[in-house]
Design a protein around this nucleic acid. Sequence first.
DNA 1: TCCAACTGGTTGAAGTTTCAACAACGCGAC
DNA 2: GTCGCGTTGTTGAAACTTCAACCAGTTGGA
Lengths: 154, 154
Amino acid sequence: MESPTRWLDAEQQRIWRTYLLGAARINEVLDADLRTHGLDLAEYEILVTLSEADDRRLRMAELAEAVHQSRSRLTHTVTRMERRGLVERQSCPDDRRGVWAHLTEAGMGLLRRSAPSHVESVRRVFVEAVGPEDFRAVGRAFERVLAAGRESAD
Amino acid sequence: MESPTRWLDAEQQRIWRTYLLGAARINEVLDADLRTHGLDLAEYEILVTLSEADDRRLRMAELAEAVHQSRSRLTHTVTRMERRGLVERQSCPDDRRGVWAHLTEAGMGLLRRSAPSHVESVRRVFVEAVGPEDFRAVGRAFERVLAAGRESAD
DNA sequence: TCCAACTGGTTGAAGTTTCAACAACGCGAC
DNA sequence: GTCGCGTTGTTGAAACTTCAACCAGTTGGA
């Protein structure tokens, strides 16, 4: 019933491992940079996502989806960020189950302060390290990864 | 003293975000697959790394380096895996500070059982989703990321 | 109307990772 | 030798994430 495993050839394996190591390195660098502002990548993405939303607020479920966190994790994370004054919860009138996470002025300020060095890190460790040609190829590659996921979820 | 932030242009930003989402998706898929064997990606990498080492064992520090975990994290992880009988610790004679992590027969067995579907997942979600051309470009790209890291650490 | 099923979000406990401190050992200079 | 310093690996607590259970509110159908 089961077909023989199609192992990766030597080159595929090398590339796969290079990817794993490289992605880990990118995370390390970005985390180290954001830590100087007291943030991690997940919190930073919450700030960015909220800052771009209408009225700088989003329903918890939408936010969770956007930043790829479980709802439970988001609840805890937002609680911590709320304690620090970066976001605040607002209950939303039209669906009384719902909760808005709203970016405060303090949260917006922290985002503005941390963004420049974060962007600089992204440039240095990834965009400029790679070069325009292959960087676009990376874009196509991960676009396909996402597209393949959407198809199989139809 | 500080130069103006060089923000990412629209395309760079799009590619960067696509990468973040795609990498997250790859992790989700692989984790879901390995979970059916009671493993996560970090543990799987420990098994693979040990299985390829001489005598199927490695010093804790080398192993930590290879799988990109902090030493502390590795200590905890290996303790848990040891409880499950997947690895065992051996003290090494020539450096009495040292500890070998050694892959047991049971650990090797679990690796052999989980490898086929893991490799199948890697193929499906990444290698074949992307296609040979861009896949090689990804290899080059992350190779550069690692090389840039090595240079700046000289 | 009423009920069952579903959704949004939270909770607390269990499991995992991080962090700072530490014990034990090796190494080189003196 | 032995003193100071770097390395190896562990420890326990704090911080974070996951997991299962849960409550409140909405929805759709009988």
